[in-house]
Design a binder for these strands. Sequence first.
DNA 1: TTTAATTCGGATAAAAAACATCCGAATATG
DNA 2: CATATTCGGATGTTTTTTATCCGAATTAAA
Lengths: 165, 165
Amino acid sequence: MKIGAGVEWCVHACTLLAVLPANRALNAEALAEYFDVPPAYLAKQMQALSKAGLVISHRGSSGGYQLSRPTEEISLWDITEAVEGAKPSFRCQEIRQGGPCGARPEECRRPCGVAASFYAAEAAFRDHLRGVSLASIIVDAASSYAPDRQEDVAVWMEANASRLS
Amino acid sequence: MKIGAGVEWCVHACTLLAVLPANRALNAEALAEYFDVPPAYLAKQMQALSKAGLVISHRGSSGGYQLSRPTEEISLWDITEAVEGAKPSFRCQEIRQGGPCGARPEECRRPCGVAASFYAAEAAFRDHLRGVSLASIIVDAASSYAPDRQEDVAVWMEANASRLS
DNA sequence: TTTAATTCGGATAAAAAACATCCGAATATG
DNA sequence: CATATTCGGATGTTTTTTATCCGAATTAAA
């Protein structure tokens, strides 16, 4: 049971996009530099966010990414699903149907108790992440930041965010 | 986010061990044959259950596996943890500490909001599986079995379970 | 209109993990 | 002692994850 590194990166990338001044954007290279992660790989992950409609991509010169909606309307599950895909973590192999005493297909219309339990556990996981918005993550992070760091970020942003016309 | 096939195999293997007659055991080969899965690999997974104390292994001729405790006291999480290990699915890379505006280590004693949220979601997943006992899985499975199938299993068991002295 | 910067999508490659097998040593039975 | 079995480790194979690169489309600005 594992979650890829891309999820963590993209969540943090979104928190940075969230505090972007009006009409500014950040490209993949700038985001990668900010977090010190491999630029090409982060760029790939950002494509997933774009395809899922969580961010808006502006192509061409002085392009970059912006969030597509308010941070209250983006949950950690939205980002996780966009990056990891929606396939269930428990992949039932239906081994109850195999072997010398295997069940017949018509007895297996519904998932077995094992699979059903894992699906329910997954739903609990998912629902918890659905309840956490980007907004709450940002509030939490801001509370642990020293005032001078906020300034650092603003300076970096001014220097690295591209301007949209 | 994925769960290995060994978890499903081991849960089903345990349900079979649970209905073993008194003083009988099943070895890895018999279990693998019953479910039609690779014998050597299932044997490897069963070792994990043994190490975790969920099953008792009897070595030597006419050896095999038995459950170590009542099915009410074995949860799906017990089995999952034994097979997959206890490492968290979200592995925080602490990227907040990297890059040009990275946080200082002393500001990072506690996990960031992102990591904390994922840990909490994982706890919800875990707690759900903790609430599902092997006993309830067996009750559920029995309800969907035709009466003649119960007979099939009993016959197979008689032929394949080894006798402990 | 040209040039430069950018995202996008796909191809590719390297590294890691999962999946699977095998074998020798220890152990228990008869 | 001979046989059957688990155990633990070593090893190999396949799949997934991680990561890079490149060409095409797109856009802003020179």
